[in-house]
């Protein structure tokens, strides 16, 4: 099984390299006009921003909503993606899978493992590592990372080190205590949400863009592109997805003064 996976991986790597050498996301073309930058978000506001550029003259990487700043259209669905990589739990995915690396969107991540939690460093010897995984106040973190103040995931039953690795802070942790890359949050979430992982693997939960054929090349959105792992209970409906600003409503028909007319004036039963 392992061998099969690595072959698949090799295939994805080489193909992605062949087809798509010039479209790395941060590689703005030299001819980019000096216009004001348009930055819009793909799925989770504040965590999935992209800068609008022209892939070719008149062919943008994204089209954005002027009202909400949301991406409405992808000129190249694989822009800025990398092969999903080794997925021990998902051996038989038929198509080619690419993802956007999450670590590129993290502000604190590059420092976590070096500046403070270096696990073995001289100023933070093992004794300063947490003795258990139980919730406790973490004022230093709260100052840097407001989500920690109001942690809303698991209704009080889980805490930081159920997800983050104790000694390797730039990694997540799996059920055996082994590290998981920040670019593969699905392996982390899947350890508790197995049903969702299964639906996600089959394309039923979450979303994919690119080619629709089951053997086609697709970009899969990973769990944290939609869910804020530190606050999944947010939103009026408490269903794990944060509320959004909607796009504009359709044009009212000629003669209809406002959308509430029928509601206010009632209809015959």
């Amino acid at each position: 099984m392992k061998r099969l996976v690595s072959k698949l991986l090799l295939l994805t790597v080489s193909c992605a390299g062949m087809i798509n050498p010039g479209f790395a996301q941060d590689q703005a073309p030299a001819t980019a006009p000096a216009l004001e930058e348009v930055i819009c978000f793909e799925s989770r506001k504040g965590a999935s921003e992209v800068t609008k550029i022209d892939l070719q003259p008149g062919w943008p990487n994204v089209k954005c909503s002027t009202k909400t700043g949301a991406v409405l259209w992808w000129g190249d669905p694989f822009d800025g993606t990398v092969p999903m990589g080794d997925m021990p739990l998902l051996p038989n995915v038929p198509g080619k899978v690419v993802v956007k690396p999450r670590s590129a969107k993290m502000n604190l991540l590059p420092m976590c493992g070096t500046a403070c939690h270096n696990g073995v460093g001289p100023q933070f010897n093992p004794p300063t590592l947490p003795k258990d995984k139980k919730p406790k106040p973490i004022p230093t973190m709260e100052a840097m990372f407001p989500d920690a103040k109001n942690f809303q995931h698991g209704r009080g039953r889980i805490w930081c080190l159920d997800c983050h690795h104790t000694t390797q802070r730039s990694k997540f942790v799996d059920n055996f205590g082994d590290p998981i890359s920040f670019d593969q949050p699905q392996l982390l979430c899947g350890k508790c949400h197995g049903d969702k992982l299964r639906d996600w693997r089959d394309g039923i939960h979450g979303k994919r863009i690119g080619e629709w054929a089951s053997t086609g090349k697709k970009r899969w959105f990973v769990c944290t592109e939609c869910h804020n792992p530190h606050n999944v209970q947010d939103g009026v409906r408490n269903k794990g997805f944060i509320q959004l600003e909607p796009e504009t409503p359709p044009q009212l028909p000629r003669g209809m003064k406002d959308a509430k007319h029928e509601l206010l004036h009632g209809v015959a039963h």
């Binding site: 979303k207 080619e211 939609c226």
Partner: peptide
């Protein structure tokens, strides 16, 4: 071969598209 635009844009991933004759399709 490309997904319809509405499938790709749906932020909650509610929209799914594929070949009904392919048992592996979404």
């Amino acid at each position: 071969g490309r997904y319809p635009a509405c499938v790709e844009v749906c932020p909650v991933g509610a929209r799914k598209f594929g070949n009904l004759l392919d048992p592996e399709s979404e």
